[in-house]
C-alpha cells in the first residue's frame, strides 16, 4: 500500500514534509491503523497515537485523504492510493500525526461537563424514564476524538472563543439530562457571539463524526432553548 505521510519532528526538522512509503500488507491487515503499525515496524521514528483499535477511545483521529477519521475503523480497501495522511487540521503539531489537543479539551472543560444536581442524594438512584434517557442517545457516545471540531472552519478561526461542535454536543448532553438542574446557567455560559453563535451550520462535523453523531442538531436545540428563554 502506498502512503504519503506528514512528518515533522521539531528535534530534527526545520519544517514539516510529506514522506512516501510503500508498505507490504498481510491479508489480516484490514484497517488503516494496521498499515500504520506495519509502517512503524519499518520506521520507528514515525509517531502517532493509538490505543483501543476499535473506535471507542478516540486516540487515532487523523486526516485521511482530506477527511478526518479514525485510522482503526477506516478500511484500507476503501482508500484511494497513495493514502495521504496528515495530522488533524487546525491544532498545533507536536510531532508527525500527534497534535496538541489542549485547546480542544479546554473548550470541552468550559461547558461544565458533569451533571449538576445539588438536591440531597436519595438512597437509591434518581429516577429517569426510558423516554427521558433516550434524549441522551446520540450525545453521550462522544469519544472526544476531535474529528468534528478540527473539521470546522469556525473552530479553525476561533479555537479560543468558539466552543466547537464536540464541546457543544456535550453542553447539550447535560442540558438534555433530566437529572441536571443547571440549564439556565448552562445557557448563560453559551449565550455569546462566539461560544455558540460561531456555528454557521456548515455541518462538516456531522459529515466526519466516526460515531455517526450530529453536533449540528444539538447546537440547533441549544439555540432553540435560548430563543424560547427570551420570549
Amino acid at each position: 500500500m502506498r502512503l504519503s505521510v506528514y512528518r515533522y519532528n521539531p528535534d530534527v526538522d526545520a519544517k514539516p514534509h510529506m514522506q512516501d512509503y510503500d508498505i507490504a500488507l498481510e491479508p489480516t491487515d484490514r484497517m488503516l491503523l494496521d498499515a500504520l503499525i506495519r509502517l512503524k515496524a519499518v520506521d520507528d521514528t514515525f509517531a502517532f497515537r493509538r490505543s483501543c483499535r476499535e473506535g471507542v477511545c478516540g486516540s487515532d483521529a487523523m486526516n485521511i485523504n482530506g477527511k478526518n477519521g479514525l485510522a482503526c475503523i477506516t478500511k484500507v480497501a476503501d482508500l484511494k492510493e497513495p493514502v495521504v495522511i496528515r495530522p488533524l487540521p487546525g491544532l498545533p503539531v507536536i510531532r508527525d500525526l500527534i497534535v496538541d489537543m489542549s485547546q480542544f479539551f479546554k473548550q470541552y472543560h468550559s461547558v461544565t461537563p458533569y451533571v449538576i444536581n445539588d438536591t440531597p442524594r436519595p438512597e437509591n438512584e434518581r429516577l429517569q424514564s426510558p423516554e427521558d434517557r433516550e434524549e441522551l442517545n446520540g450525545l453521550y457516545e462522544c469519544i472526544l476524538c476531535a474529528c468534528c471540531s478540527t473539521s470546522c472552519p469556525s473552530f479553525w478561526w476561533n479555537p479560543d472563543k468558539f466552543v466547537g461542535p464536540a464541546g457543544l454536543l456535550q453542553a447539550y448532553r447535560f442540558i438534555a439530562d433530566t437529572r441536571d438542574q443547571a440549564t439556565n446557567e448552562r445557557l448563560d455560559n453559551l449565550e455569546d457571539p462566539y461560544r455558540l453563535f460561531r456555528c454557521h451550520s456548515i455541518m462538516n462535523c456531522v459529515d466526519v463524526c466516526p460515531k455517526g453523531l450530529n453536533p449540528t442538531r444539538a447546537i440547533g436545540k441549544i439555540k432553540d432553548l435560548l430563543v424560547k428563554r427570551t420570549v
Binding site: Y114, V115, N117, R121, E125, R126, L127, Q128, S129, P130, D132, R133, L136, Y140, F174, D177, R179, D180
Partner: peptide
C-alpha cells in the same frame, strides 16, 4: 448514577 452515569432505564 448520582454522578451522572447514563444508565439505561426500566419503565
Amino acid at each position: 448514577e448520582h454522578f451522572g452515569m447514563p444508565f439505561d432505564r426500566l419503565d
